[in-house]
């Protein structure tokens, strides 16, 4: 057998394996959500499809699932927007303004992500408790911005360095202030990178668990990951169908974003990481 052939076969095995690995648990989740009974894999149990679980999750007010979803979307969108804004100011200063000691600042920003999340929670809790913000959305937005900033700064930094300096200079001569240069020239020109950064920050915030677990108490601020993690049955036995239906709905926004903008996300992720 020729080497080409072996390689071809290996490739198809790899593709199949990768698809199975990535999609099987996801598919199992969706299927369980659609199944009348969660134990449909048992030989004696028939698979009966139903929308019942989805109906319950979306309509039963005592589950508060839609509130969780709303909280998640609001918190993620707001914190991603703020993170991108704050990060672009910093990336602009670091690429354009000859800030003193900029490499040091850059590595400090990266080093911040070395701290384990668990080392922040007690003081974040104290802060938010002092402000009376426990179980509010802003109590999540602020730490999420801080938590996604290092990644955002690094990605934007790498995009901004690729914009020719002459564009800035032209804009300055054309009458822009520094801030106008950033908002009227640099950000629009770097739009794809800015969008990648926003997507990543959004997904990071949407998926965050520990802060949300500590800083929220109920549906007024609780986010989807915590909601699903703490989803317990009302009658002892875990309602797997409902949990999986909720999980399916919860992952829908991020999965859709990922499928539609996969190219942007991959670019942003690898820029932020490999560039350094």
């Amino acid at each position: 057998m020729s080497e080409e052939r072996v390689q071809r076969i290996l490739l198809y095995c790899g593709v199949t394996g990768a698809v199975l690995f990535c999609l099987a648990p996801f598919g199992y989740m969706v299927l369980t959500g659609l199944s009348l009974r969660p134990d449909f894999l048992r030989p004696e149990i028939p698979l009966t499809l139903t929308a019942l679980n989805f109906g319950t999750v979306l309509t039963d007010p005592s589950l508060h699932f839609l509130a969780y979803l709303r909280n998640s979307l609001v918190v993620s969108a707001v914190s991603a927007t703020v993170a991108v804004l704050v990060a672009s100011l910093a990336a602009y200063a670091l690429t354009r303004l000859e800030a003193p000691g900029k490499l040091l600042i850059l590595f400090f920003i990266l080093g911040v992500s070395l701290f384990p999340q668990v080392s922040l929670v007690s003081w974040l809790y104290k802060f938010m408790a002092t402000l009376g913000w426990i179980n509010t959305l802003q109590a999540l937005v602020l730490p999420y911005v801080a938590w996604t900033l290092p990644l955002a700064v690094w990605i934007l930094y790498s995009y901004f360095t690729q914009i020719p300096r002459d564009l800035d200079r032209a804009a300055l001569v054309d009458g822009c202030t520094r801030l106008q240069v950033l908002f009227r020239v640099v950000l629009p020109v770097a739009a794809p990178g800015v969008f990648s950064t926003f997507l990543l920050a959004f997904i990071f915030a949407f998926n965050e668990f520990l802060f949300a677990l500590m800083l929220t108490a109920d549906y007024t601020a609780r986010t989807v990951p915590v909601g699903i993690a703490l989803f317990e049955g009302r009658h002892g036995e875990l309602p797997w169908g409902e949990i999986m239906a909720a999980a399916t709905v919860a992952t829908l926004p991020v999965v859709l974003l990922t499928l539609v903008y996969q190219r942007r996300i991959v670019q942003g992720l690898t820029r932020g990481a490999v560039k350094g």
């Binding site: 002459d166 564009l167 200079r169 032209a170 001569v173 009458g175």
Partner: peptide, 17 residues
Amino acid sequence: SPRQRNVAMVFQSYALY
């Protein structure tokens, strides 16, 4: 600052937006 000088400049790279 440049924006208060009322100068205009053409760059080698043209620097079009």
